[in-house]
């Protein structure tokens, strides 16, 4: 592996200081399950790795006035095991449960998953349909970015080079329901060929999101007033929204079929859950 300096931070101030100083030569190290693979493959060669895991604040996982706060360094397994997840947020645990393997999930963080901004990242779609916000900090202060504005391109986010994600905030679904599905090449741990999430509010507003069918996970929330059971119209809208490509994991054609198949199953589940 290429050489770098490992810097361990115990406070946010320390981390943003370091990041400001080393700017483009530094990378935040969370679980490292994306970053260390990239470094190993020679795709990235940062001079400094800033380990943010010791920062206590980033490990918060709590409900605050109906708002779920997931600290950026919360691991995917911690998220799965969280007992106080509000009703209606199933999409997030369902996605987390099929992300990588158990060992990887012990390291992989929620912040790392979205900051890595892979088009196939499994937490993208559920966070999109649940209307999550990304809270960040830099020397210039704190801000929140709606998740639908967060992803810019393949592996590119709207984060500034000196900015750190501190938490992901998810508003209460208030009686709404959600679900997530993933298609991979095998049943075991694998990246998504297509992943998908859907959520409906109590009054029937549908949001759907898909991964691995465009440069970033994409949100579709305007279905021209189609009803939940009007699958054909909904699928039509989705087909216009996606722009899949052929790659080593699947062809564009298959991805389209899978968007349709997943959308149907998701709509079915959502309707069942609304009634249940």
């Amino acid at each position: 592996m290429a050489t770098f300096k490992y810097l361990r931070c115990h406070s946010l101030d320390e981390a943003i200081d370091l990041l400001a100083t080393h700017a483009r030569q530094a990378r935040i190290l969370a679980g490292g399950t994306d970053l260390l693979v990239s470094i190993r493959d020679g795709l990235e060669s940062p001079r400094y790795l800033i380990d943010i895991k010791p920062i206590a604040e980033l490990h918060t996982l709590a409900l605050e006035d109906g708002l779920l706060r997931i600290g950026a360094s919360v691991t995917v397994n911690q998220l799965i095991d969280f007992e106080h997840l509000p009703a209606g947020m199933d999409a997030i645990t369902e996605a987390a449960s099929c992300l990588a393997s158990y060992q990887i999930r012990n390291r992989a963080t929620v912040g790392g998953n979205i900051c890595n901004a892979s088009p196939a990242c499994d937490l993208g779609p559920p966070l999109l349909v649940l209307g999550a916000k990304v809270e960040t900090i830099s020397k210039r202060g704190r801000r929140t970015i709606p998740i639908e504005d967060f992803f810019e391109d393949v592996k590119v986010t709207r984060l500034e080079p000196d900015e750190i994600v501190t938490a992901i905030l998810i508003p209460s679904p208030r009686g709404g329901v959600s679900t997530f599905l993933k298609r991979s090449r095998i049943k075991g741990h694998d990246l998504a060929v297509v992943n998908a999430a859907g959520a409906v509010t109590k009054d029937g507003n549908l949001r759907m999101a898909f991964g691995a069918v465009a440069p970033t996970p994409i949100l579709v929330d305007d279905f021209n007033g189609a009803r939940l059971d009007d699958t054909a119209r909904i699928v039509d809208v989705l087909m216009n929204a996606i722009s899949p490509i052929d790659d080593v994991r699947a062809s564009a054609v298959y991805r389209k079929y899978m968007v349709e198949a997943l959308a149907k199953k998701i709509l079915e589940t959502l309707m069942n859950r609304l009634q249940g």
């Binding site: 490992y6 490292g32 399950t33 380990d51 397994n77 990588a100 393997s101 990887i104 012990n106 390291r107």
Partner: peptide, 29 residues
């Protein structure tokens, strides 16, 4: 494999199994 895919490197750190090929030595201080 050296990239988290095979699990041959699994060890237990603070009670949790992890892929030791994707953890840096200074991280386990």
């Amino acid at each position: 494999c050296g990239r988290g895919e095979c699990g041959a490197c699994t060890v237990i750190v603070d009670g949790k199994p992890i892929n030791s090929c994707l953890v840096l030595a200074p991280e386990v201080d």
